[in-house]
């Protein structure tokens, strides 16, 4: 009886979004009279930072500061259609819709400014600080605030844009079954090191080392936050979480989340995260979807590490001490 160390590796090729009957998201952008921009969505921010990233995307496209963009995700009854924030689709799908809407709004904004400055809209550019000026002649300038006022009060125009991003449904080829389930893929690889006590079946995660390739990280700190949390969730799925902790019979099953095993801060493992950025051709500013993927490769990596440590293959999650001990018992029985 001993504590045995093992190491396992796993990699994942992860599609951004999904493809059932087509995968659409829509966005509407309009200027307020103060020269701020409002993005209307029915996509929900669950805490992953959708609002922040959509504000960045809109601001970058229109040419204003991020603080000048307000994101409204208020109501799925009244907002533009969105399939939802799941399947790692938010940044990619909704971001692309926001870009299209913001481009249209920017074009109207430049047309209004062109009218005010008596120049051609094609000769104008934004300075990112809230002003529009003639290329090469920054003194010939109008603020976006004044541009909005002019549109609203003099020209009777709405500085606004409509955005739509649709990944059409992909049908499998009849002969080969080949299809295109996604337009871009994120990638990840995890190396897990564990200590397995072959007397108690307990697993201690010695280290988790992850590499994530996620397209461009639009907000690097929030990407890191997602990946750190996700990596931990992967470990937690692999080793701890179940609605029926340790007991096969329903009599002992949990009845709600209060009885759901949720590890605390004392159970975390030393974690390393490396981010690789290979911008996606069809991503908003190159982004892919890392959200769900970041909790995936830890699970097979840990299963492989446990196999490396004690030679048993556990194919049920979570890999509890009980399952390891039963597998070890079977292993000893067949060895004799």
């Amino acid at each position: 009886m001993a504590i045995r160390r093992g190491r396992g590796v796993a990699a994942v090729n992860y599609p951004t979004g999904m493809n059932l009957g087509g995968d659409p998201s829509q966005a509407l952008v309009h200027s307020t009279p103060t020269g701020n921009f409002m993005v209307t969505l029915s996509s929900v921010d669950l805490g992953q930072g959708l609002k922040q990233v959509m504000a960045q995307i809109c601001a970058e496209t229109i040419g204003v500061k991020t603080e000048q963009v307000i994101i409204d995700t208020a109501d799925t009854d009244t907002g533009p259609h969105c399939m939802g924030t799941f399947a790692s689709r938010g940044t990619h799908r909704i971001g692309n819709a926001v870009i299209q809407a913001a481009k249209e709004a920017r074009q109207v904004m430049l047309e209004v400014a062109a009218e005010a400055l008596e120049v051609d809209a094609g000769d104008l550019e934004t300075d990112g600080e809230g002003n529009i000026h003639v290329k090469g002649a920054p003194q010939k300038s109008i603020s976006i605030f004044d541009t909005a006022l002019m549109a609203h009060f003099k020209l009777g125009r709405s500085i606004s844009g409509r955005g739509m991003f649709l990944v059409p449904r992909s049908y499998p080829e009849v002969e080969t079954g080949a299809m295109k389930p996604s337009t871009c893929y994120a990638h990840a690889c995890t190396v897990a090191e564990v200590d397995v006590d072959d007397e108690t079946g307990e697993v201690t995660v010695v280290s988790i080392k992850n590499v994530f390739e996620i397209g461009r990280a639009l907000n690097p700190k929030m990407v890191e936050q997602q990946l750190v949390g996700g990596s931990w969730m992967g470990i937690s799925h692999a080793l701890y979480e179940t609605t029926e902790p340790y007991y096969p019979a329903r009599d002992h099953a949990g009845t709600d989340f209060n009885e759901y095993l949720m590890p605390g801060p004392g159970d975390i493992a030393p974690t390393e995260i490396v981010v690789l950025e290979r911008p996606a051709e069809d991503g908003p500013y190159g982004a892919k979807g890392p959200g769900e993927m970041c909790a995936n490769p830890q699970i097979p990596a840990l299963a492989n590490a446990i196999f490396d440590a004690v030679g048993v293959r556990i194919d049920m999650m979570p890999i509890t001490p009980e399952r390891i001990l039963r597998a070890l018992k079977e292993q000893r029985a067949t060895a004799h």
Partner: peptide
């Protein structure tokens, strides 16, 4: 000490590391 002090609080999102 920090892990001990936070051991009665659970978090679904962060993986605890940023909190510590």
């Amino acid at each position: 000490d920090v892990i001990e002090a936070l051991s009665g609080n659970v978090c679904r999102c962060t993986g605890y590391e940023p909190i510590i």
